[in-house]
Amino acid sequence: MPVEFTEFDIEGPVLFVPNRHRDKRGVFAETFRYDDFCEVVGDIDLVQENHSISVPINTIRGLHFQTCPYAQGKLIRVTQGAILDVAVDIRPRSATFGQHIKIELSAENWYQLWIPEGFAHGFKTLKPDTHVMYKASNYYSPDHDRGIAWNDPDLGIDWQLYGQQPVVSEKDSRQPLLSDLNPEILGPMGHTPPNHDFTPLNLNRANVTVLSANPS
C-alpha cells in the first residue's frame, strides 16, 4: 500500500500519510488510490473536488456539513501552507457526539484527513496564502448546506488564536450552536469504516496535534 493510515479515539476519521520517494530531482508519491481508500473506509465514491485559497493567516472556515441525502465525507489535504483541521462528531446516536479531533495538515507533512459523513468540518490557517483541496463523497447542495458556530463554547475547541482575532465570513459568524440545531436536521448520518487492522503511525508530535475534547 503506497500510504500508511491510522485512526483516532473517535471512530470514523482516518489519517492517511503517503509514502514519499525522494531523489536528486525531488519527491514523488501516490497521493490517492481508490482501491486502498475503499479498503480502509469502505465502498465510498468521491465525486467532487474543491480548492480553497485563504490569504490571511488565522482565517477560520467552518464548521460546515451537509444534511441527508447530500451528506458529505471529505478527504482533506493542504498543497500550500498549513491548517489546524477540526472535525466534530455530530452523529446523534454516537457515543462521542459533540467531541472533536484536531490535527495539523500542511504542505510539508503531506497528511490527508478523511472525515466521514456525520461530522462538521472546519479549519484555521496557520500560514498566509494557504491552499486546501478536498475530495467529497457527494455533490454540493446549497439547500442542504448547514453549519455550527466555530466558537460554540459547548464544543470546547481550542483554535490556538492566542488573543488574535480570526478572519471569519459573515455566513460563518452567524452559524447556530450545536445545541440549537433540530436533531431531525442531523438525521441518521454517519458511515463508520469496516473492521480493519489499522496500522499505528510514528507521528512527529511536533508537527501533529490529535485532540479529543469532552463536551460540556
Rank of each mutant, 00 (worst) to 15 (best):
V3G: 01
V3M: 10
D9E: 08
G12E: 02
L15Q: 00
P18M: 02
P18V: 01
R20D: 00
H21S: 12
D23V: 00
F28L: 06
E30M: 11
D35K: 09
D36E: 13
D36I: 07
D36P: 04
F37R: 07
V41K: 01
Q48A: 05
E49F: 09
N50H: 03
I57Q: 13
L63T: 13
Q66G: 02
Q66P: 01
C68V: 12
A71D: 13
A71L: 09
G73F: 09
I76S: 00
A87P: 02
D89Q: 03
S94P: 00
S94V: 08
I101V: 04
K102Y: 00
I103P: 00
E104P: 03
N109W: 04
Q112C: 09
W114I: 01
G118A: 00
G122L: 00
G122F: 03
L126N: 05
A136Y: 04
S141Q: 14
A149M: 06
W150A: 11
N151P: 08
D154E: 14
D154Y: 12
L155Q: 01
L155G: 05
I157F: 01
Q160W: 13
L161M: 02
Q165E: 14
V167T: 12
E170I: 08
D172I: 07
D180W: 11
N182L: 08
E184C: 04
E184R: 11
I185F: 10
P188K: 07
M189D: 06
N195L: 13
F198K: 03
N202E: 14
N204C: 09
N204P: 02
V208T: 15
V208M: 06
T209N: 10
T209R: 09
T209D: 13
V210R: 09
V210W: 08
L211D: 11
